[in-house]
Structures are given as C-alpha cells and as structure tokens.
C-alpha cells in the first residue's frame, strides 16, 4: 500500500498512527482504572468522545501544518464557517445512517437509543471525521459515494483502511453478546464500543508495523514476506 518514494508522507502516517496508538490505550486504561469501562455506552461517558474528537483534531492540525511547510501555497479558505457547518451537517447525516444501520443489524428498536446513539457517534468519529478533516466535506462525500477513487493518496488510503477496521471491530464485538457468561460487559453496546476502538487501534498498530518493516526490508530483504503478508490484511482493496 505504501510506497517508499514519499518519505515525508510515510513519516506523517507513522507519527499520526503512533499518536493514536498512545492516546487511545491511555484513555481506555484510565477509564478502566476509574471503573468506568462498563459505562462507555451511557451518555455520561460523552467526555470520551470529546477526548477522541480533540485528539483527531490535533492530529489533523499536524497533518496540515506539515502540508503547509511542504507546499507553501496554503489554500485560501474563503468561507471557513460555511465549511464547518457543512461538515457538521454531513457528520450528523452519517451518524444517523450509522444509527439506522446498527438498529437494522439487531440493536433494540424501541429502547437503548442513548447507547445506540453513542455507538454511532463513536463510529462516525473514528471513521468519517478524520477523512473530513483531511480532505474536506466534498471530497469525502465523493469518496463515500464512489465517485472518486482514492488512487494514490497514501494518507486517504490509510484513513479508509482505519475506518473499515473500525466497522469490522464493532461488527465482531456483537459476537460475544449472546454468550451466557453473565459478565457485566456483555451488555449492549459495550462489546461493540470496545470492538470499534480495538479495531481502530489494531489498524493503527498495523500501519506503524508496516512502515517499520518496509524501511527495515531495505536492509533485510527477507522481511518483504512479512510486508506482503501485512498487505493481505488490507480491506480497502
């Protein structure tokens, strides 16, 4: 997936993935030490979403800043407020469609709306939000509806891959709910919540791993096997 030609992009991918690998586990660790891990579905744990929101925002600023340094001509942002509003509406739409999708997949229809909403908010935050931050509303809409292919842009490819891993994680999380272990975390939507976070995390870890391996493979060609094995894990093909 990644090419070694563009060192700068590679570096950005690695650093942003590394940041994710650090901040997400720390959030999860802190809340689990606070004993709040099993309340992730409630609206009371909204601050987690805020934290993730801020972290993603900071990451995108990092992307932008490096971008500006590299290509001096920064786009003149004509109506920033309009952009923000548009992306907000777009995010709401995405969240609503996640909400409907989750209910169709088997979440309770008439109750637990709060939990389902929180899960869809998390999914939106982890999947579409970074894309919007990076490319803007219109491009991400085009990407979503398949008008534009994400061809060679390494970062977009990485972001799409992260998004797919997140959704898969949430999907897999639902598997443990029916089991009769009677544990406190087998309640809707905790496994899906944690699954989504886990999927996002794994995807980022894989990114870091791959970049490291690729740069190591220059010295040790035997590692190319591992790289190709990792490339097989790519869902976004």
């Amino acid at each position: 997936m990644f090419s070694l030609n563009n060192q700068l992009e590679l570096r950005r991918v690695t650093i942003s993935s590394l940041i994710t690998c650090v901040y997400l586990p720390s959030i999860v660790t802190v809340i689990s030490y606070k004993g709040l891990l099993y309340s992730v579905g409630n609206a009371s744990s909204f601050y987690i979403l805020v934290l993730i929101f801020i972290a993603e925002l900071l990451k995108s600023f990092y992307f932008k800043s490096v971008n500006d340094l590299q290509s001096k001509k920064s786009k003149p942002s004509k109506n920033k407020a309009g952009d923000v509003l548009k992306s907000f509406v777009f995010l709401l739409c995405v969240m609503f469609s996640f909400f409907v999708g989750i209910i169709l997949f088997g979440a309770p229809v008439l109750d637990c709306h709060e939990e389902t909403l929180m899960l869809s908010a998390l999914l939106t935050l982890l999947t579409v939000f970074p894309l919007i931050l990076h490319t803007g509303v219109e491009t991400s809409m085009q990407l979503l509806f398949g008008v534009r292919q994400f061809g060679k842009d390494t970062i977009i490819e990485m972001l799409v891959n992260n998004a797919l891993f997140t959704v898969c994680g949430a999907w897999l999380g639902a598997v443990v709910i029916p089991l009769d272990w009677n544990t406190p975390w087998q309640v809707w939507p905790i496994p899906c919540h944690l699954g989504a976070i886990g999927g996002y995390l794994i995807s980022n870890v894989l990114n870091v791993l791959k970049v490291t391996l690729m740069s190591a493979a220059i010295k040790y060609p035997a590692l190319n096997l591992l790289v190709s094995a990792l490339n097989k894990l790519q869902i976004s093909k």
Partner: peptide
C-alpha cells in the same frame, strides 16, 4: 455447538444474513 447461540439463534441468523 454452543447453547447460548442456539438460544439466540434468531438474532444471530438475521445478523449474518444482513451482513
């Protein structure tokens, strides 16, 4: 082979079919 999935099989089948 798992009793809990048999008990909740309706939900499981619709989940898989929809996926």
């Amino acid at each position: 082979t798992s009793n809990s999935y048999i008990i909740e099989e309706g939900a499981g089948l619709s989940f898989l079919a929809l996926s």
